[in-house]
């Protein structure tokens, strides 16, 4: 039971403190999932993100399901996912019911502009850490640059990019096996 409560409350916090989409959750995932509870490694989180890109649904939800299941089976996956959506249910219901002009309020707009800067700071540190863990050699670096350029400047679906990167990893293994 304790584990389920930890899963629910940790993912509740991650949902509560994330502004933006699934990627913006990364600093919170590093804090809670990787450093605090040791539920997954940085590599595993990246794997879940890659799969989340190619499977239906919201990436934050997919990541919560993956990690919850890893910790405590199917029920853990469901509990973690319910945790990550709970804050949205509460906050949006309150805002929709009470402050209908929420996003037009000056103070909200200014605070959000500030929060965007905070997200930049947090993401800088997160990406730096991912880069150190995930990009280890020349081929990794090439895949990283190509994926970045295509995702940044073209409309190519990330699904295809993930598949292509997976194929590159497979081909590299075959080549290395051939040499061995």
């Amino acid at each position: 039971m304790k584990v389920l409560w930890d899963l629910y409350s940790a993912w509740f916090r991650m949902g509560l403190f994330t502004f933006g989409g699934g990627y913006a959750m990364l600093p919170m995932i590093q804090k809670e999932v990787i450093n605090k509870y040791h539920w997954a490694t940085e590599d595993e989180v990246m794997d879940y993100y890659a799969i989340g890109q190619c499977t239906p649904g919201i990436i934050a939800v997919n990541t919560a399901t993956f990690i919850g299941r890893k910790v405590k089976g199917d029920i853990g996956g469901i509990v973690a996912t319910l945790g990550v959506i709970s804050p949205s249910l509460v906050i949006i219901t309150l805002i929709a019911g009470l402050i209908t002009n929420f996003s037009d309020l000056d103070i909200v707009r200014h605070a959000l502009k500030g929060i965007q800067v905070a997200v930049c700071v947090l993401m800088f540190v997160s990406v730096r850490s991912l880069f150190r863990k995930g990009v280890k050699n020349k081929l990794d670096f090439a895949v990283f640059v190509i994926a970045w350029v295509l995702a940044q400047f073209t409309g190519i679906s990330t699904v295809f990019l993930v598949i292509a990167a997976g194929i590159a990893g497979y081909v590299r293994m075959r080549i290395q096996e051939g040499r061995a």
Binding site: C120, D140, A147
Partner: peptide, 28 residues
């Protein structure tokens, strides 16, 4: 094989996240 494929995924994921982050930088 699965391990090799995931080794291929990871640097690409870092690339996607960088792209998303730079878009946030632009707005911020």
């Amino acid at each position: 094989t699965v391990k090799a494929v995931f080794d291929g995924f990871r640097p690409a994921v870092v690339g996607f996240i960088l792209a998303a982050v730079l878009s946030i930088y632009q707005t911020a």
